[in-house]
Design a protein around this nucleic acid. Structure first.
Lengths: 235, 235
DNA sequence: CCAAAAGTGTTAAGGCTACACCCATGC
DNA sequence: GCATGGGTGTAGCCTTAACACTTTTGG
């Protein structure tokens, strides 16, 4: 990086922000955390949580901060990664704001604890009318360029199913294979073949049978946990 | 994106920059454009071209501007994409600077025209001692965190060989299959099997024989050009 | 005719898809 | 005993990797 001591054009500061697409499972569906804006522009529209980056703050810290400030409880993501920076000049009517978009994965149970699961009235926190976990594949109309951000977040999440095993981070410590398949299906938004899925996952060696079984309606299912060596990262 | 009207911590502005890893082929080797810094910190060290983003300027425009300001000639990239944003607090000793890193591909002949091909004295332009096209896989020591940026740029470039057909952008309009294979090998930094390479590329249908042949030492080679429908993009 | 580089096919192995029935449990 | 969901195997296809010789030209 070369910083010319006297740039040709005066360098009016550019605002730097983060936006977070935080995903969790609820009722077999993939949900994304959205906030209902309380201020103009786009008042009452839904948006991804976001905010300006502070000067001594790492990008991922800023992402965690905005995530936590939008909900009453302290969300603890299992995975957090930057995936694209949105900087188009006209993307925010308030001025030049460049946003580093992040993808977050929250564990099982998050939706039940933090925020309502449907578009109903949620806890009123911060500068928003409320927050809610809404359908990730069929969200309401979003403010600014947040639909593009969400589209790209979903694409990245789907990539991470293959290369990393990010689906595991959506589940509790122990889980059954049908549950894991449900997470894949919710993320990919399509059905998968049971036998092929089991074959593939078991041959990857990322699952260890816990020995326990989950009982309920129908035949009990074997419980698994993430193997010691299982990786959850990729390029 | 939610911009709280009164952030808890005062939002001292964060500097926003771009850095560019610009690649071109030269002598069967993959080269990257580096500038030798004329100022502290890291004076006389090599670095990727970069600079602050101006307030009305798109990110890709800023990337093009720094690319052009470092070399005498007007470089015209065949491909330019953002690939990661580097924002660690301590990455630049001069203050909080977040940099959106870009990958650029320059066509055949660029190295010969714009800048020297080795680490010798290059044209003195701008705020640097000079610029040069140096080995991308075995570069000299780089300033700041630029080695990490270069590593990641190379990884992205290698990805783009598979999904897009980015290798085509390194070559002149017509080229032979052994030349194309050479580009792949230079980017991947390993040898490929000739028959498998030809089979794969020809079956993709992105190449059209031009009918001409390239003569020289040994048997003349068929010339190809990029097919009309060939794509050069991916996620 | 020799050097140099271009061009050409086959085989084996592994991964992916499609597809239908039996099993264990609770009620 | 029946409803519910869990669990299992095979065959065809395609993709990938390994591997050596012949062809065409210029000098």
């Amino acid at each position: 990086m070369t910083l010319p001591s006297a740039p040709a054009v005066p360098a009016t500061p550019v605002g730097l922000a983060v936006d977070v697409a935080a995903f969790a499972m609820h009722g077999g569906e993939l949900r994304v955390l959205l906030v209902q804006r309380g201020e103009l522009p786009h008042a009452r529209d839904w948006a991804l949580p976001g905010g300006l980056v502070m000067s001594g703050e790492e990008l991922h810290e800023a992402a965690l901060r905005v995530l936590r400030s939008e909900t009453a409880v302290e969300l603890e993501p299992r995975h957090l990664e930057q995936f694209h920076t949105f900087g188009e000049v006209g993307r925010d009517p308030r001025g030049r704001i460049v946003s580093v978009a992040h993808l977050a994965v929250l564990p099982h149970g998050t939706v039940e604890i933090a925020g309502l699961d449907v578009s109903g009235e949620a806890s009123e926190v911060g500068h928003t009318l409320g927050a809610g976990w809404l359908s990730a594949h069929r969200p309401p109309a979003l403010a600014f360029d947040h639909q593009s951000i969400l589209d790209r977040a979903l694409a990245r999440l789907q990539l991470r199913l293959e290369y990393a095993n990010l689906a595991l981070e959506f589940l509790p410590e122990t889980f059954t294979l049908p549950e894991l398949q449900g997470v894949h299906e919710a993320i990919l938004d399509r059905k998968l073949d049971k036998r092929n899925f089991r074959k593939r996952l078991l041959s990857q060696g990322v699952l260890t049978p816990s020995g326990e079984r989950r009982t309920g309606v129908g035949r009990p299912a074997q419980l698994y946990r993430k193997a010691k060596n299982a990786r959850t990262a990729a390029l």
